[in-house]
Design a protein around this nucleic acid. Sequence first.
DNA 1: TCACATCTTGACCCAAGAGTCAAAGTTTGT
DNA 2: ACAAACTTTGACTCTTGGGTCAAGATGTGA
Lengths: 194, 194
Amino acid sequence: MARKRGQRVRAILTAAAELFGERGYAGVSLEDVADRLDVTKGSLYYYFASKDELVTAAIETLGTDWTDRLEALPVAGTPPERLRALLREHIRIAVREYPAALRMFLVPDEWPQEQRSRITALRRRHDAVFRAVVEEGLRNGAFTVVAVDPTLQAMHAAMSQAPVWVRDDRGIDQLADTLMMLVGVGPVSRGSGA
Amino acid sequence: MARKRGQRVRAILTAAAELFGERGYAGVSLEDVADRLDVTKGSLYYYFASKDELVTAAIETLGTDWTDRLEALPVAGTPPERLRALLREHIRIAVREYPAALRMFLVPDEWPQEQRSRITALRRRHDAVFRAVVEEGLRNGAFTVVAVDPTLQAMHAAMSQAPVWVRDDRGIDQLADTLMMLVGVGPVSRGSGA
DNA sequence: TCACATCTTGACCCAAGAGTCAAAGTTTGT
DNA sequence: ACAAACTTTGACTCTTGGGTCAAGATGTGA
């Protein structure tokens, strides 16, 4: 049945995303992936024609799912409320569900050429979710930034690294609140510089 | 002459740091390193006993040099001035001199066990430079943070990614100023919620 | 020029990993 | 129960990459 096949593919993609996120494209062999699933390498080739195809699918699925979940968050509330919710959800997914996978989106050079443009595209859609909220907050004066791009890049960089050092819910909240300071919201002293 | 040997070793380490930073431990073969230096693989083994030894030396040298340069910055000035100088110098080195190498310090899981603890140690010393300034700023009230650790982690994560999207001096300054907001300094609106 | 030390080479070995495939094992519908 | 479709296996090939080494090349000093 097609249902079963879908589940199988899912399981493979999840295992692959974890491993590739942990050790990178070249650091993971298909045997590694197969081992984690308690099957043999040959079996993977029944579902995917090559390592590259597997990796591409893993990136695609992960990126799409992730963004879908962020886009599904309620759009009610003020920009600060919504941005904090986005940050928290993003970090929560990163830390709890894909503790390593996010790195796939951070180190594009590590991947074969073919994957890079796809990774870039997925990142763009992902960024757009945050950008929309930040820009709305800027328009109504709730946020202040030096420039939008470095602010968003810094947020994403920090969140991608989060699984390395964030453990519990308290860490998630602290990081989310810390990143809110990038848009000028939080336990803020008076500006004294540039 | 020992002088010549030292230069040769330096050249090898620089090439290695760049390549490993770009594509990770498993993504780079010693042939790749040799090619970049226009020599053959065998020649590298005259200077280093193994791939691991080369990698360890590359990490060690890069990490030490980098921190040395940050520690050499003037200690005069207020914490905000000094932190901004630190950030700017760090990003400048990252973007202009080692456009990829920093990533070696970001993805510890990717490296063989032996390297990990060394990487961690080097990062700690590196972090200490920033931590000292941030804590001083907190003591005298110039800075405000949610918590010190996530603040420092976020800074480093963002700076490590910087070479991917920062091009010119303006980008460096913008990122440095953006990161200053993490300690509550900058073009800041009033805090509206915690 | 000759001896000695310092590199560099390229051929070689071996293990690991990508990819193939026929044969065997398992489901599923009838 | 049986056949057809689906899935898994493990043995196989071929390439890549870590590591070795004897031989040659390039200095260096007397």
